[in-house]
Amino acid sequence: MKFSLKSITILFAASLAVSCSKEDILEITKPSVDFSFTGTNLPAPALVSFNSTSPEAITYFWEFGDGTVSSEKNPKHTYTSGGNYNVKLTVNSAKSSNSITKSITVLKALSTVKITKIEVVAIPPTNGILNWDSATDKPDIYVQLFDETGVSSLKSNTIWNFIPSIAIPFTVTFTTPLTTTNLTNTILKVQVWDDDSDSNSTGLNPDDKIGEVPFKIINYTTGTNKYPPFVTESVNGTLVTMHMTWE
C-alpha cells in the first residue's frame, strides 16, 4: 500500500493531536492533593498530626522528611529532634497520582529547667498524721529545696507566726534560680519546716519537718502539658506549687 507525502503528513498530525489530547486528559484527571497539620513549632519530641484533604485519593504515601514514611490517611508522627522538615504527601486515585510538599518546623529539645519560685499553699494541721509541732507557739515555717547536690534554700526565708489557714500562699522567690540540666533523673524535694529556734533555749525542741513534696522533673517533659510554667504537688496535706522556666 502506498501513501502520498500529503497522506503521511495528515496521519502524523492526527497522531500528534491524539497524543496531546491524552496528556491533557491525564493532567485533568490528576487527583487534588493537600494536607493540614498541627503540633509544630513546639520543642522536640513533638507529636505532629497530619490530616489529608484529598477527596479523590484511594491510597496515601507520606514522607515525613526524617527518613520515615506512612501509608495512613491521617497519620501522627513524633519528631525527636528539632529542625525544618519537608513533608511530602503522594496520593493515588483510580486514574492517576499527585503529590504536594510542605515545610514544617520543630524546635530544638529543651535541656534546662530553672526553679524560680516556691509557693506553700497548704500545710497539714499540727494534730494530723505527722503531728509535727513539738513547741506550743504558732508555726514559724521555712522552706528547703533539695536536689542531687544538696540544699539550695536555707532558713533565711522563715515566716514567723504563720497561721495555717492564711489564704495567701507563703512564697519563696529565688534571687538565683536553681538550675538543673538532668531532666531525666532529677527529683527536687521541697521540705517545709517549723522553726523552733525562738523556743529552743534548752535545745529540747529541734525544728519539726511539716512535710516533704517531691517533684520528678521527667514527669513534666512529656504529655499534652509538657514544659509547664508551674506545677502543683501534694503529700499528706502539704500542698506546694513550683514555678519554673525551661530553656
Results as ranks from 00 to 15, higher is better:
81 S>P: 10
196 D>E: 11
7 S>K: 12
124 P>Q: 08
214 P>C: 08
29 T>W: 09
218 I>Q: 03
32 S>P: 04
142 Y>E: 15
145 L>V: 09
152 S>G: 03
204 L>R: 03
84 N>V: 07
39 G>L: 07
159 I>P: 02
54 S>M: 13
186 T>I: 01
101 T>S: 13
92 N>Q: 10
214 P>T: 08
227 Y>R: 02
151 V>H: 09
164 P>D: 00
243 H>F: 05
158 T>G: 04
78 T>H: 14
77 H>W: 03
132 W>A: 01
161 N>Y: 08
231 V>F: 03
84 N>D: 06
131 N>F: 14
121 V>L: 13
192 V>E: 02
181 T>C: 02
113 V>L: 06
115 I>V: 04
53 T>D: 11
16 L>N: 10
142 Y>A: 13
170 F>T: 00
139 P>Q: 06
157 N>K: 12
41 N>Y: 11
110 L>V: 03
87 V>C: 09
182 N>C: 05
138 K>C: 01
121 V>G: 01
35 F>L: 08
174 F>A: 00
192 V>K: 02
129 I>L: 05
66 D>E: 08
90 T>L: 14
3 F>M: 13
74 N>W: 08
153 S>C: 14
191 Q>V: 01
44 A>V: 00
27 E>Q: 13
47 L>N: 09
229 P>L: 02
114 K>A: 10
18 V>D: 04
44 A>S: 15
140 D>E: 03
80 T>I: 15
209 K>D: 01
99 S>V: 03
237 G>T: 10
156 S>N: 11
54 S>T: 05
82 G>Q: 10
241 T>M: 08
29 T>H: 08
46 A>T: 04
231 V>Q: 07
